[in-house]
Design a protein around this nucleic acid. Structure first.
Lengths: 337, 337
DNA sequence: CTGTTAGCGCCTTCAT
DNA sequence: ATGAAGGCGCTAACAG
C-alpha cells in the first residue's frame, strides 16, 4: 500500500495539516517542520493521491477527448497539439474512440462526466447534435473539432479553406495555367470544407474570366474510379493543363492513373493536392499541396477548452482561423518557360 | 452543481445506502424504494461521481499510456487496440507523450501514479531502464511495447520478425529468385527487430546455398541516399533480381530511385517491404510487404495489463508472439514464367 | 430490506 | 505557525 499523508505526518511528528501545507505551499510552515516533512516524504516515497485531491477540490485536471478513430493520421496529429498544450497546464487527456457511433459518443460523454473531466474535446467527421445538447445541459466546457462542418461556428476551430484555395489557384495561374479543372469529392460536397475549396476555385476562375471545369468523384474506391478516369481522359482531351484536387488522395490516385497510361506529372498534366498528409512526404513525384497544421488545430482547441474551464472570456477569439500554407513541390509545371 | 447521492436520497426519501444499493445493484432493495430512487435519479439527472468512488474503492479504472509520439502512424494504430480492449472492460485511457525524453517519461509515470492508474503501458522506441525500475518499485502493473528491443522479454509483446522474414525469402525463392539482396537500416541494426529480419534473410539464404548480399543504409535522409543509390546500382550490375527491404520506406525510396533512372518494378527488379503502413495502400506499384498487426499488439498489451491488475496468472501467456502476414501485391516478378 | 456509522486521502476553515 | 475537526461523494460493514 502506498503511504498517505497520515504516514508522513506521523513520521515527521506534525499534523496532517502541516504536511498538506508544505506539499501545497499554501501557508507558511516553520523551516524545521518543513524539513522534517520533506524528509519523511522522501523516506516514505510519498506522493499525494490526486483522486482524493480531486474529490475535495472538485477539480480533476482531466480533459476528455472523444475521437472518431485514433488510428487516423489527422486525428493523431491533432492530438499532438491537444496533449502538448494540456500538459503545459498540468491537464491529462482521457482518450476514447467512438468509431463514428453517435450513441457511443453520448455514452463516452457520460463516462467522462462521471470521471469529473473539466471539459471535453470532440474530434469527429459528423456533428452529433444530441451530444452537443447533452454537453450544454451538463454545462461542461466543450469544443468540437470537425473536419467538415462548421455549423456551430462558436464551437469550432475554423480553417481558412477558401482563401488558401484561392491562393493555390492564383499560383497555378501565375505559372501560366488557364485551363484548370477542379476535382472534388462528391460525397463530401455537403460538408463545408469541400464547399469552401470549391468556392475558392470558382471565385478565382471567375475573377480571371476562365472557364470552370469541375470533376466530381464519389470516392477513391475501385468502383468509383472508372467514372473518374473517363472524366480525366476527357479533361486532357479538352486541353486541361492543371488539376486542382480537393484532397491529397485524389491527387495521388490521379497521378497513379496517369502513370499507368504512360503520362507524366507534371510534364503532361499539373496536379495539386490538399492536406499535406504524411504520404505526400514519401510519394513521388513530390506533390504540391496545401498543408493543414493539425497540431495547431489541436493546440488551439485545448487552449480554448482550458479558457472555458477557467471561465475566462473567449469571445474575442471566438473565431480562430488557422493558417494554412502551400507547399510548392514537383507536380506543377511552369508553362511560362 | 451536479446533484449527489444525498440529493437523490432526500428526494426519494430513503437513506444514501439504499441509493448506493440500487445504483450498484449490490444488495436487495424493495421494489418500491428502488422505483422512488430511480425516479429521483431521473429527475435530478444524477450520475455517480467516479472520483469519490475511486477513492473509497481504491480503484480508478484508469490505465496510463505513455507513448513516444501519438502522431506516429504505428503508435496511433496500436492505441486503437489499447483503447478498444480497455473500453470493453470499462477502463479509460490516460494518454501522454514523452517525445523520447526519458525524464519526461519518469515524470509522466509519477503523474499517472498520483492519478491512481491501475497500470501503465509504455510504447516507445527506446527502452527506459529507469522507468522500468520505478514502475517495479511502485509495484505498478506495466507492459512495455517496444518497436525494437525485447531485452525485457517478460515485459514485451514479441513479434515474430524472424519467421516472417524467412517466409518472405521463401516466397521470393519460390518465385524463381536466386540472387537476392537485403537492405537493412544500419542505424537500427543494434535493435533486435532489424537483427531478426536480417537473421531470417541469412538463414534462408544459407539453407538454399545462396550468396548473401546485404546493403546497409544509414537512413532515408538525402545525405544517406547517395551512398545507397551507388549500392543499388552495384547490386543491379551484380545481377540481383530481388531486394528484401527491412522497412516499407526503404522499399519505396528504392522504387522511386529506380523510377527516376527509368527502371521499372517489378520488371527490372523485385522489391519487398516490411510494415504494411498506410502509405503502401496508396503507393503504386502496390508494394508486396509484411503486414504488422498493430491493433493486435495494442489489444494484447491491454489484455495483459488488465490481467496483471486483476492479479491473474499471466505466466502461461508470458510470450505472446503476434501473427504477421505477407501481403502479396505487385512488386515481385514471377521469374518462372 | 434499511438506516447508521465509519472511513477512503486530502484540503480548509477555525481556533489556538 | 500549528492542530483539530468537518467534509468532498461514495461504499461497506454493522446493527437492526
Amino acid at each position: 500500500m502506498a503511504s498517505t499523508i497520515k504516514d508522513v505526518a506521523k513520521m515527521a511528528d506534525v499534523s496532517i495539516s502541516t504536511v498538506s501545507r508544505v506539499i501545497n505551499d499554501s501557508k507558511p510552515v516553520s523551516p524545521e517542520a518543513r524539513r522534517r516533512v520533506l524528509h519523511a516524504i522522501e523516506v516514505l516515497n510519498y506522493t499525494p493521491n490526486e483522486v482524493a485531491r480531486s474529490l475535495v477540490k472538485r477539480k480533476s485536471y482531466l480533459i476528455g477527448v472523444i475521437v472518431d478513430d485514433i488510428g487516423t493520421s489527422y486525428v493523431s496529429k491533432i492530438l499532438r497539439g491537444v496533449e502538448e498544450v494540456g500538459r503545459m497546464y498540468n491537464y491529462d487527456i482521457l482518450l476514447a474512440c467512438s468509431y463514428g457511433n453517435p450513441k457511443a459518443e453520448l455514452n463516452l460523454a457520460k463516462v467522462f462526466m462521471q470521471k469529473q473531466v473539466g471539459g471535453i474535446i470532440v474530434i469527429s467527421t459528423k456533428l452529433n447534435q444530441k451530444l452537443l445538447y447533452k454537453l450544454e445541459e451538463y454545462k461542461l466546457p466543450h469544443i468540437n473539432i470537425n473536419k467538415f462542418y462548421d455549423i456551430e461556428e462558436n464551437l469550432t476551430v475554423r480553417i481558412g479553406y477558401e482563401s488558401i484555395s484561392c491562393e493555390m489557384l492564383n499560383y497555378l495561374i501565375e505559372m501560366g495555367h488557364r485551363n484548370i479543372a477542379a476535382m472534388i469529392m462528391q460525397k463530401d460536397i455537403d460538408r463545408t470544407e469541400e464547399r469552401y475549396k470549391l468556392k475558392g476555385y470558382q471565385k478565382i476562375m471567375a475573377e480571371n474570366d476562365l472557364k470552370e471545369n469541375i470533376i466530381y468523384t464519389m470516392g477513391t474506391e475501385e468502383k468509383d474510379l472508372k467514372e473518374v478516369h473517363k472524366k480525366i481522359d476527357q479533361a486532357i482531351e479538352d486541353g486541361v493543363t492543371a488539376l486542382f484536387c480537393s484532397q491529397d488522395e485524389l491527387a495521388i490516385h490521379t497521378i497513379n492513373y496517369l502513370s499507368d497510361k504512360g503520362l507524366k506529372v507534371p510534364q503532361d498534366l499539373s496536379v495539386t493536392g490538399f492536406g499535406g498528409t504524411d504520404l505526400t512526404e514519401i510519394y513521388r513525384p513530390k506533390l504540391t499541396t496545401v498543408r493543414i497544421s493539425y497540431y495547431e488545430i489541436g493546440a488551439v482547441a485545448m487552449r480554448r477548452t482550458l479558457k472555458l474551464i477557467e471561465k475566462e472570456d473567449t469571445s474575442k477569439d471566438e473565431r480562430v482561423v488557422l493558417p494554412l500554407s502551400i507547399i510548392k513541390r514537383d507536380t506543377v509545371k511552369d508553362l511560362r518557360k
